[in-house]
């Protein structure tokens, strides 16, 4: 295999990193604002959930978990949809940013989806009488969505050609996204096979202070997703840079070998060395 080489590795040299203490994170003014906003919204939503809002006429105190579970359950789609958009951009335009966004969206989405399932299970035990119900279509399709994206993340860790791997991952992401409308419509299509109620939010069936607490829940989870997505995207970007530096290093190594005729890594000529 032969490729033209590119002499400018982006690795921060030890001297550069030593003199750049301020540049050792994925934080920026944007993420600082998002982080502070997120922290404030957490405090507000906890106050609204536990002190400002009223118990529900049917559910009583259990409704207080609604303000966390429902925003998580609805907004978990956002990182997955960003993953889908990124995947389309990669498949269509070979966009590197799209691929990185897809990777970031899948990971943040899996965290949100897992938390949706866990908080839902904790709510389900006293409300429905069980942590889990295999016949509830919404529950099971949400679990499948989570598992599909866990598979997506595992696929991205399989060593191999990055472009082929990104292409395979993008296709898996787009197939997995078919599950989202299924989850959303399951309470309508299988009404007698789901313990979940029909859309409370969409039909405006929550009012006053409880609606305000729900709104705060959505703001809190939304800011959290924005904060996590931004950091995760930057991590994906940094990982790509590190990979590139590794490749550039290897090329520089081979170039040195080609110039001297000696396998620099083991100190012998290729004729003497054979396989490493």
């Amino acid at each position: 295999m032969t490729v033209p080489t590119n002499p400018s590795p982006d690795l921060a040299t030890p001297s550069a990193t030593a003199s750049a203490p301020l540049l050792t994170s994925t934080s920026s003014r944007l993420t600082q604002v998002l982080g502070i906003g997120w922290a404030i919204s957490v405090v507000l939503v906890v106050c609204a959930a536990f002190w400002w809002s009223e118990p529900d006429a049917t559910q009583g105190e259990l409704v207080r978990l609604f303000y966390l579970h429902v925003p998580l359950a609805i907004l978990e789609y956002v990182p997955f949809l960003l993953c889908g958009i990124g995947s389309v951009l990669f498949l269509w335009k070979r966009s590197e940013w799209g691929d990185l966004m897809a990777h970031a969206g899948a990971e943040v989405g899996v965290v949100m989806c897992a938390l949706t399932l866990v908080t839902g299970a904790v709510w389900g035990r006293p409300t429905w009488g069980t942590y889990w119900d295999w016949s509830d279509v919404r529950l099971v399709t949400t679990l499948i969505l989570c598992l599909l994206f866990v598979g997506y993340l595992a696929l991205r860790r399989v060593p191999g050609d990055p472009t082929t791997r990104a292409k395979q991952a993008a296709i898996v992401a787009l197939v997995a996204l078919i599950d989202i409308p299924l989850i959303n419509r399951s309470v309508e299509w299988w009404e007698n096979r789901t313990l979940h109620q029909k859309g409370t939010i969409a039909q405006g069936k929550i009012e006053d202070i409880n609606a305000f607490a729900t709104l705060l829940g959505f703001i809190m989870v939304g800011l959290g997703i924005a904060f996590l997505m931004t950091h995760r995207f930057r991590i994906a970007w940094l990982e790509r840079q590190v990979d590139r530096v590794g490749l550039d290093d290897a090329i520089a190594h081979r170039r040195a070998e080609a110039a001297t005729g000696v396998d620099a890594s083991v100190g012998r000529t290729p004729e003497e060395g054979g396989q490493q």
Binding site: S53, E54, P55, D56, A57, T58, Q59, G60, V63, F66, T127, W128, L195, Q197, K198, G199, T200, Q203, K205, I206, E207, D208, I209, N210
Partner: peptide, 9 residues
């Protein structure tokens, strides 16, 4: 199976 109406006490 609770319904979709939420009304406070």
């Amino acid at each position: 199976k609770h319904d979709s109406d939420y009304r406070n006490d």
